[in-house]
Computed example of a mutant assay.
Amino acid sequence: MASARALRTWTWLHTWSSLVCTVFMLLLCLTGLPLIFHHEIGHLTGTEVEAPDIDHRGPRASLDAVLQAARARHPERVVQFVSQDEDDDRIWFVTLTPTPEPTDDFRSVAVDARTAQVLAEPRFDEGFMWVMFKLHVDLFAGLPGKLFLGAMGLLLVIAIVSGVVLYAPFMRKLEFGTVRRDRSPRVRWLDLHNLLGIVTLVWALVVGATGVINTWADLLVKAWQVETMNTLLAPYRGQPVVPQARRGPVQRALDVALAQQPHKRLSFIAFPGTAFSSPHHHTVFLRGQTPLSSKLLQPVLVDARSGEATAAPTLPWYLTALLVSQPLHFGDYGGLPMKILWALLDLVTIVVLGSGLYLWLQRRQPRPLPDEARAAPGPAGATTRSLSEPQGTLR
């Protein structure tokens, strides 16, 4: 009796956690599919900025000359970040906004790192891929949208775990991979739903869990600022943001940071007063050169006035988890083969989600099929019909 009661509890938990999140998970799977190949799509559509093939043998342009060229395009804006692509250091991307505070109102200027010539002003805040990105990240609702999708991700994890618990008794008298093609369409879809769900189990847990972590990014950065940055900035307490006219050369800040960490490469520089820096520093974020370490960041705080490195704090574990989860969520660790695998698993998951919704809707029919009650054998004390219900969505 206790076993039957526990089974009913797991069934209820799986059914309703799945039903609540299924529509949103379908949306995330559909929008996530093109995002897996965002670089490849950009190259095909011509929206990716590529460095011109020129014969340049002299010294590269100073970063300050690069910034001057970008500011000339938008003199009313301030620089928030400057970055380089992981695979191509011939282009600087300069991000300019109306104020240093976080905003969706930004302009990007791509500048040739060799000549300081402006190459393009790509718009990352419009077009099909931007719509897909915003729907996938926050539903166009900012932080509340991110946290809502994070809650849906937690329900997905619950649905997966409860689905695994229900899978063992469901398959007690069936061989693994059995799809009873001689039974009703509903039973065939139930078998296929459970088979595909258990096959994609690990992937679904990984993508679901990393997706939840990614929705907390803004809060984790705020926690880091309160926990670590405030301590490091104690000597600067009460001082205003360093004005542009009194800041030292940014190229010097970069050189100082690279001298501190000679085996690392630049990821991006956050300017004073922006979300990833302090009011008094250029914060240079460096990354490693291996596939894993290239996803991890080491900040170096360089005083914006004096150009001296004042700290190189180690990121806390929760930001490290965030940095690891972001590329893993989109399959960015193994190049194109891993992206293709991620896309195939994403398509299978869409089938699992859709079939779970179909099975639940079929359950609501007033007259179940005659063989439906025998779809799954159950332990003593549990009705066989309770095990034959779809239990929502098992990914």
Rank of each mutant, 00 (worst) to 15 (best):
S18K: 04
F37W: 01
H56V: 11
W12S: 11
D55L: 05
T47N: 07
L7R: 13
T15P: 04
H38Q: 13
R57L: 13
C29S: 09
E48A: 12
T9H: 04
W12A: 14
T15N: 06
T11N: 07
P34I: 00
H14L: 00
F37E: 01
W10C: 12
T31R: 01
T22M: 04
A6I: 12
L19D: 03
E48N: 11
G58S: 10
H14M: 05
E48F: 05
T9W: 13
V23E: 02
T47H: 06
L35E: 03
G58D: 05
L28R: 06
W12P: 11
I41C: 03
L30W: 04
G32I: 02
A51T: 09
H39G: 03
R8V: 14
E40I: 04
D53M: 08
I41R: 09
H39K: 12
L13K: 10
L33D: 04
C21M: 13
L26E: 06
F24N: 13
L26Y: 03
I36A: 05
H39L: 02
E48Y: 06
R5G: 15
M25L: 15
M25C: 15
T47V: 09
H39M: 05
P34Q: 00
V49S: 09
G58L: 08
D53I: 14
W10H: 03
L28S: 08
D53G: 11
C29P: 08
